[in-house]
């Protein structure tokens, strides 16, 4: 059984949501604020909202898309915003840039939608993440699987979804550790392919365990 070069420390992570006071009443205002809001707001309405709604496997992608659909009745734009996959981004600046691009393109195509008042405003918030170590550590893949089956789904989100934003990873924590510390690149790659949009976080946990099980004897 392979012993890791360094143990994996599972973290308990939880979000504190701060209301910024910025609000958009129209798509034009949304575009302005997406351009100017803090990174922590972009994180909150994409990465964080996915955690907040982790039990939904269809129809929810991020807060912007949801608001555009429910409050602005612009399904085409909502679909485009929904299609942005946060796993593709290692930096919030890139995600912000693509959000702006989608909004700008749509408002060029449908300029009359820009000043139309939404049914209710979009309120910008930001996430402050507090992370503390749990009692779970892993030195081997078996210990990793044991711990993974016990930690909360917030821990799964912290290590599997939000991790790729933390320098210098650009991949999820689990894949990084499995490749770097256990030398199991194939497993690391297959884990990184697990779809967070068509699985609940509980489903992600199950898939992680399914992917890892055949490697327990490696």
């Amino acid at each position: 059984m392979r012993i890791a070069k360094a143990p994996f420390q599972f973290m308990a992570a939880a979000p504190l949501i701060r209301v910024t006071g910025q609000r958009a009443r129209t798509l034009a205002e949304l575009l302005d604020l997406v351009r100017a809001c803090p990174d922590a707001s972009i994180f909150n309405h994409t990465f964080q909202s996915l955690q907040q709604h982790h039990f939904l496997t269809e129809g929810f992608s991020n807060d912007f898309a949801q608001w555009v659909l429910a409050a602005c009745n612009e399904p085409r734009l909502a679909e485009r915003l929904s299609s942005l996959d946060i796993r593709q981004y290692a930096h919030l600046a890139e995600l912000r840039s693509d959000l702006v691009d989608v909004l700008e393109t749509y408002l060029r195509e449908v300029p009359e939608a820009a000043p139309r008042r939404a049914f209710e405003p979009f309120f910008f918030c930001e996430t402050l993440t507090v992370a503390v170590p749990t009692s779970w550590q892993a030195q081997t893949l078996a210990e990793f699987c044991e711990a993974l089956s016990h930690v909360s789904i917030h821990t799964v989100h912290f290590h599997f979804v939000a991790a790729r934003l933390r320098e210098p990873l650009t991949v999820n924590d689990f894949s990084f550790w499995i490749e770097e510390s256990l030398g199991l690149k194939e497993l690391a790659d297959s884990i990184d392919q697990i779809d967070i949009y068509t699985n609940t976080l509980e489903g992600v946990r199950t898939r992680l365990l399914v992917e890892a099980t055949p490697w327990l004897t490696a």
């Binding site: 308990a12 939880a14 503390v132 749990t134 016990h150 909360s152 917030h154």
Partner: peptide, 13 residues
Amino acid sequence: GASELAEIRALAQ
């Protein structure tokens, strides 16, 4: 779930 309570206790600690 027990993991959620463990998180609460870890934060309180």
